[in-house]
Design a protein around this nucleic acid. Structure first.
Lengths: 200, 200
DNA sequence: TATTGAACAAAACGTTTAATAGTTCAGGAA
DNA sequence: TTCCTGAACTATTAAACGTTTTGTTCAATA
């Protein structure tokens, strides 16, 4: 890895930690520069402005999240197992990442149900591709119902976002784990074709 | 109907219209009193304060919504038809009620994914009862999978709220209708027991 | 290319003040 | 009693102010 990338990684890492700890407003450019052992003026060599620093930091964190899920999915071959792995790994990742959870709580607008308000549209779009590919593969293999892939992908991603909001933004922890697992099985049943037989 | 109830209905009707038109902040107690042909002082005979007026007004509107869905569901007997009727009627009602839609847009916090923040907890709880009864009946009649009724009810209600937010709060109108219908069929398939046969 | 530090601009903050809007209440009419 | 009025009172909001903090730029430099 080249030294420039290293510098960026360190920058995003420090930045994420501070934003998680203090939130966007209370984190000053000076704070970040101090922790990096540089002056705030020099930060502007790496990012356009504070907003840009924040956006790049979150985007980087979301990239790592998606990559982790993608890798887990790629290890599997069966579409049903892929689907289940995707769902479980996604939740597992955030479950074990306190800093990212804190970021979500500080800034509820990171995950929005409105695509037009979505500041992370591109990364979310690429996350949806994972769902889409699994659906296509499952339909191709005659394991899944021939659903409207585009809309069902959108639907699954919306449910996923809804869960994230419920559980980590609104911290409605109570029974949301059980709800998630019940929902997962229900959706898999909704997708599955009964072997060979097409019900009337 | 007794005259007191009539007065309240008029009050809520006028109030809803003004809140829809101007939003909570811009609607003054004076505005409401004027439209009712009374003084603002007298409004306090009917409600505790402005906040109470708003809460009672919205609650009343939500009551009418739920009653309309409940009536439509009660006209059916088959659990699958009931389920579909419930979903379609719910969306149909808001689709044909511009004032209520405006209220939702003015105040995005009416429908929240957090039960602890829910100012309309009771009415939403009673709406969930409709779902719960249909699930119980369907399971009893061996038409539905024996799902965890409590959590699946919560799940369906959350999806419903998610759709309302997406469509009427964030006005992501684009393809949300198609998504809704695809999701409805997927969920029904997920609920349905294949006749007689239990898949391994 | 990467960094500094000073200078500048913009935003946030605390305070004061005036206007507006919400609430109470004594008293009177239905 | 129930319902209502109108004036008095209180709380909230908005604007304007100077002050301080913070974000951003840039010429100089290693």
């Amino acid at each position: 890895m080249n030294p420039k990338d290293m510098k960026y990684r360190e920058l995003f890492s420090v930045s994420l930690e501070l934003f998680a700890l203090f939130g966007y407003k209370k984190t000053t450019v000076q704070d970040v520069a101090d922790r990096l052992g540089m002056t705030k003026g020099n930060l502007y060599f790496y990012v356009k402005n504070k907003q840009d620093l924040y956006l790049k930091t979150i985007t980087h964190a979301l990239d790592l999240w998606r990559d982790s899920v993608k890798q887990a999915v790629d290890r599997e071959t069966d579409p049903v197992v892929k689907f289940r792995t995707m769902a479980l790994k996604s939740v597992d990742y955030i479950e074990n990442n306190a800093m990212l959870r804190q970021i979500l709580m500080n800034d509820p607008s990171i995950f929005t149900l409105s695509s037009s308000e979505d500041r992370f549209y591109e990364i979310n779009q690429s996350a949806m591709t994972i769902i889409q590919e699994i659906l296509n593969q499952g339909i191709e293999a005659k394991r899944f119902h021939p659903v409207d892939v585009e809309h069902v992908t959108q639907y699954f991603f919306s449910i996923y976002v809804m869960f994230l909001i419920k559980t980590y933004v609104k911290s409605d922890t109570s029974s949301s784990r059980t709800m998630f697992l019940e929902a997962l099985e229900l959706n898999i049943r909704g997708l599955l074709l009964t072997d060979g037989v097409t019900p009337a």
